[in-house]
Every structure is written in C-alpha cells, then in structure tokens.
Design a binder for these strands. Structure first.
Length: 403
RNA sequence: GGGGAGAUGGCCGAGCGGUCAAUGGCAGCAGACUGUAAAUCUGCCGGCGAACGCCUACGGAGGUUCGAAUCCUUCUCUCCCCA
C-alpha cells in the first residue's frame, strides 16, 4: 500500500472534523505508519439499538471510509454487548436495554446498509460481545476500579441528571468502560465518533494507557441536526433521513430543511470539497440567489450519493409534479378494491391514516382529496369500477385504488 | 435502617371526590401564506361509532363511594434528608 504524505493525509482527515485530540499524536501515528508501511487501526463503534441507519450515522461512516481510502484499517465494532447496557450519552434518561438477540439482528441490517458507504471488502467487522460477554464479575470489578465516580460525573449528561434528581443507574457507568475495553481489545490507534461521544472516547484512551498501550487519538465529528434543524438527527425524534429512504422521500425531506442547515448538510452529508463549499457559501450570501435553488442542488446531490444521479433527477421531476404543479406522482401505492367499501376503511387498511378518528378529522379539515375533488363526506363509499381512483391525504400521502 | 416527597396522555406539567378523555406548553397532523424554508394565523390532536353514546386511560393490584386521576390498603419504582 502506498500512503500519501502525512501532511496531505492530515489535510483530508481534518475536513469536516470537530476535534482531534491530541492532534500531534495523530501526526505521529501517521508518520510511523508511513515509515513502517503499516496501516493504522481506525475504530468506529456502532450502537445497534435501532435497525436502520440515517444521514447522522453517515457522517462518521463517511469519515471511516475516508480512512479506508487512505489505506488504513477500518474496524467497525458492532456494540451488540454495549447495546444491552444502553449508551447514556446525550440522554436524560436511562436507555432501554436490548437483549443480545435483538442487538444481533439489528446489527445485521446495519452492516448491510453501511455497504453503501464503506468498502466492505476491506472492512474488519467485530462484535464486542466476543470479549465483553466473557468477562466475569471479578474482571468487571478490576475494570471498574480503574475509574472514579468523580471522573464519571465530569460528564455533562450525568451531572445534569444528577442535579436534576433524575436516576442514574450504576450500570450506566459501565458503558464508557465497556466501550473503552473495545479500544484496548482492538489496540485502536484512532477512534471516531460524534461530539456526544467525546467522553466515551476519552475513557478508551485512558484505559489503553492503564493497559500499557499507546493511547488512541480521538476524532469527533459534528452532530448533524435532523430535518427540524434543531435536534440531532435521530429516529426517535422522527427527524431523520434514512439511508433506506426512497429517492423521492430523501429529496422531499431535504427540501424541507431550514435554510440554515444547507451548508452543514453539504459538508457533512454530501461530503462536498472545499472548492464546492466556496461556491455554495458565495451563493448563499448572494441575495439574488434563491436559497431554495441551492437546496434543490443539495437534494439532488444527496440522492445522487445514496442512490444515483438518474434517480436524483427523477426525484426532482416527481417533486415538481407533486408540489409545484400540484399534480399526482406517476408511481404510488396501489390498493385493489374488491367490493364497495368505506373510504376511511380503505385509507386505514392502506396505512394512509392511523385510525378512523384521524381520518374523520382529516376529512373535516379538507385534507382528503378524491380524484382532485375535496371529500366532505366522512362516510363516503367507494365502488369498484373500471377506472382507477386516486386518493390523496394531506400533501404527500397518495393511494391508487384499482377496481 | 429511619424520615419525607413523588409516579398523570409522545414529552413537560396542572388537576386533588362528580361539570375529567383530563387546563396549559412543547412535539405532531391538517388548512392558509410560501420555497414541503423560516415566521405567522386557524383548526385538530386516545379508540370504536353516522349519531345519542360506548370502551380504554392518570405506576400495578385491591377497596370505600351512587360516583375516584382525586380518599384508603397494598405492591412496584424514583428522588431527597438522616444513619
């Protein structure tokens, strides 16, 4: 493997990064790697407590990919064991604990999805239950003795919860230690994570020192806010753009972002280079350019990254048809009607509404459209006929009813 | 071990025997305006039912009462103070 000169590697690595601690050490490690012609170990832990990945995860995954492209060894640690503890980071509550089985099955789909970003052939995938699940109580005691309560309480989230009199369970203190053991086990040179992971990453560093290892360099990446532009992207906040989202959804959700997020998304989600960013920034500050058009470009590029260029253009055409010309999409869910049925019944079965109560409300609010006509009758019946009927609920829920 | 406080809808938080499917805020949804932006305004916001209404719900289980989120018993959980 031929490596780039250290300063060039550093320049790339630093892109879009929040913090590198300590930076000098990273340079050191890279220099040594160059001299010995050996890759450095770059670790990224993932929490398989949710089965699907979104753009927030993509930020760190892309950084890991970058290390792969630079010729280094990327290690994806599936935190199947740590998921049964539940990461307390950034939470004001104890996390639900998963069973090892649930974690494993989530992990599977996680790895599948990460193929979009990572070079799976060069990726080392490990499960931390391999070493954590075999530790016995005395091993845990020994491990726990290497850290103090005061240091644990340095964490904001613990301090805040403690002050707010919100419970903190003892096992939550074990989370950073467990994650740190991963670094020891893997002899990680670098560990990546979101800024909310800083504490956990530093604990890994400390533990490596305790175990006589060369401590890892920690590299944190900014957290990407979700479509609401406020909270960090998370499925539980419902503000995420999933890597599995269809091109249409991905495009649409991107356009619903607030303008302030455009720049950040270009850097973190698209991975735009400096030249592109200069261009984006100058357009954003130019009052004659409508931010919407820059956002459209963002949406196109985003879809192109996770799907393809063609899909991106198609998504844009669909979007324009639906939201600009207010027409109907050319592809939509279909429903085959066998007998006369109530409209609400159909919508419920097709999943366009959550309950009939919701459906009634929507009809009252003039949000249900049948073939372009606003429906005002909650009890409307649909009879199977020769021609298809298009049902629309709200702005974006469509259903084609076939007779 | 002792003493005190508390557990309410997705979240925060009122209510403290009927008028409570439960004030208010946030989030969400729909409509208007737009660029599926922001801001703003309006409406909705447990389920079933065309509707009178019925069912489920104020940590769990019992009980008192014509009637309980509200009172009692007990269990579970949390926080605080003392040892």
């Amino acid at each position: 493997m031929k490596y780039l000169p250290v300063n060039e590697q550093l320049k790339l690595i630093e892109l879009g990064v929040e913090e590198i601690l300590p930076k000098g050490e990273l340079q050191h490690k890279l220099e040594r790697s160059l001299e010995t012609n050996k890759p450095i170990n770059v670790k990224l832990g993932c929490d398989p407590s949710r089965p699907d990945l979104h753009l927030g995860h993509a930020v760190v995954l892309r950084k890991l990919r970058q290390f792969q492209d630079l010729g280094h060894q990327a290690i994806l640690v599936i935190g199947d064991f740590t998921a049964i503890i539940g990461d307390p980071s950034g939470r004001n509550k104890t996390r639900p604990q998963l069973s090892l089985k649930e974690a494993k099955s989530n992990a599977k789909s996680y790895v599948d999805q990460s193929k979009v970003i990572l070079d799976i052939n060069k990726l080392k995938i490990v499960y931390n239950s391999e070493w954590l699940n075999v530790m016995n109580f005395s091993d845990v005691v020994k491990l726990a003795s290497r850290y103090t309560v005061a240091r644990m309480l340095e964490r904001d989230d613990f301090t805040n919860r403690y002050k707010a009199e919100i419970p903190i369970s003892i096992h939550e203190f074990l989370y950073p230690l467990a994650q740190g053991m991963d670094s020891v086990e893997l002899k990680a040179d670098v560990e990546l994570g979101g800024t909310d992971q800083k504490f956990n990453l530093l604990v890994g560093r400390d533990l490596q020192k305790e175990y006589g290892q060369d401590p890892q360099v920690i590299l944190t990446l900014p957290l990407l806010e979700g479509t609401d532009g406020v909270e960090k992207m998370s499925k539980s906040y419902g503000n995420h753009i999933s890597l599995l989202d269809s091109p249409d959804d991905m495009y649409g959700k991107t356009l619903s972002l607030s303008d302030e997020m455009i720049e950040k998304y270009f850097i973190l989600a698209v991975g735009a280079d400096e030249a592109t960013m200069d261009d984006i920034r100058s357009q954003l500050s130019d009052s004659s350019v409508n931010p919407r058009d820059i956002k459209r470009r963002l949406a196109r590029e985003l879809v192109a990254v996770y799907h393809s260029k063609e899909k991106a253009l198609e998504a844009e055409r669909n979007f324009d048809r639906i939201f600009v010309q207010k027409a109907i999409p050319d592809k939509m869910e279909e429903y085959t009607l066998l007998e006369e049925k109530q409209l609400l019944e159909i919508l419920l079965e097709a999943g366009l509404i959550k309950s009939k109560g919701e459906g009634r409300r929507l009809v009252k609010q003039k949000a249900v459209i049948i073939d372009g006509e606003t429906c005002t009758d909650e009890l409307f019946q649909i009879v199977p006929g020769d021609k298809e009927i298009v049902l629309k609920v709200g702005k974006r829920r469509f259903l084609k009813v076939l007779g």
